[in-house]
Computed example of a mutant assay.
Amino acid sequence: MTPSGAASRRTRWRRWLFVALLIVPIVEIATIIGVGKVIGGWPTVLLLLLESALGAWLVRREGARTWRALSTALQTGRMPSRELADAALVLIGGTLLVTPGFVTDIVGFFFILPVTRPLTRGFLERAVAARFLATPMRPGPGGGSTVEGSVIDR
């Protein structure tokens, strides 16, 4: 990978982060105001507090379950790729649940709930594979592909 490619990717991530930090609060405030107009101010605050409490309980439960699965995978000598993905999703989902608002809570619950986490895990695995496994290959002898490398004999 060229240094300019890494710098371009870093710039793109910064741009996306800036847009997210600008748009997400606006969307959250608009959603909270909209819900408040429909059900009232105090019920909206109560609903946000209820979501936070439910989210904290769920993060604690799913975090413990994910930690046990990760420990079991490591003790049995199995590669814990699924468990690591689940741990990352629970961490991200928990962070989103701590952020006040309905939209981030919905996304956070989607990341944490055991029913929807496999869908999110599949997306995460495809994104990681596209990012890290997209090694440029060149045609090798006999039409196959080869990857540059070296053998170190110790």
Score class of each variant (00 low, 15 high):
T2G: 12
P3R: 12
S4M: 10
A6H: 13
S8G: 14
S8W: 10
T11S: 14
T11M: 12
R12C: 08
R14T: 12
L17I: 14
F18I: 14
A20R: 03
L21S: 09
L22R: 04
V24I: 14
P25K: 02
I32G: 08
I33Q: 10
V35K: 00
K37V: 07
K37C: 05
K37T: 07
V38D: 05
G40K: 01
G41T: 13
W42Y: 13
P43L: 08
T44D: 06
V45P: 00
V45Y: 11
L46A: 15
L46W: 07
L48N: 05
E51N: 15
E51V: 13
S52W: 09
S52I: 06
G55K: 01
G55I: 04
G55Q: 05
A56S: 07
W57E: 03
W57T: 03
V59G: 00
R60Y: 07
R60P: 00
R61E: 08
R61L: 06
R61Y: 01
G63P: 01
G63T: 01
G63F: 03
A64F: 04
R65K: 07
T66I: 12
T66Y: 01
W67Y: 11
W67E: 13
R68L: 12
A69L: 12
L70P: 07
L70T: 06
S71N: 14
T72I: 12
A73W: 05
A73Y: 04
L74V: 12
L74Y: 06
T76M: 12
G77L: 10
G77K: 10
M79W: 14
M79I: 15
P80V: 02
P80F: 06
R82K: 13
L84V: 11
D86K: 04
A87C: 09
A88G: 08
L89E: 02
L91I: 09
I92H: 04
I92F: 11
L97E: 00
L97K: 05
V98R: 03
V98Q: 03
T104S: 09
T104E: 02
D105P: 09
F111Q: 03
L113T: 10
L113E: 02
P114G: 06
V115Y: 08
R117V: 06
R117F: 02
L119R: 08
R121G: 04
R121D: 07
G122T: 05
G122E: 08
F123C: 07
E125R: 09
E125Y: 02
R126P: 01
A127S: 08
A129D: 09
A130N: 01
F132I: 00
L133C: 09
L133V: 00
L133S: 11
A134N: 14
T135Y: 02
P136G: 05
P136S: 04
P136Y: 00
R138I: 06
P139A: 13
P141C: 09
G142K: 09
G142R: 11
G143W: 07
G143L: 07
G144V: 14
G144K: 14
G144L: 15
S145D: 13
S145Q: 13
T146S: 11
E148I: 07
G149R: 08
S150R: 15
S150W: 14
V151R: 10
I152C: 04
I152W: 12
I152R: 12
R154S: 11
R154M: 11
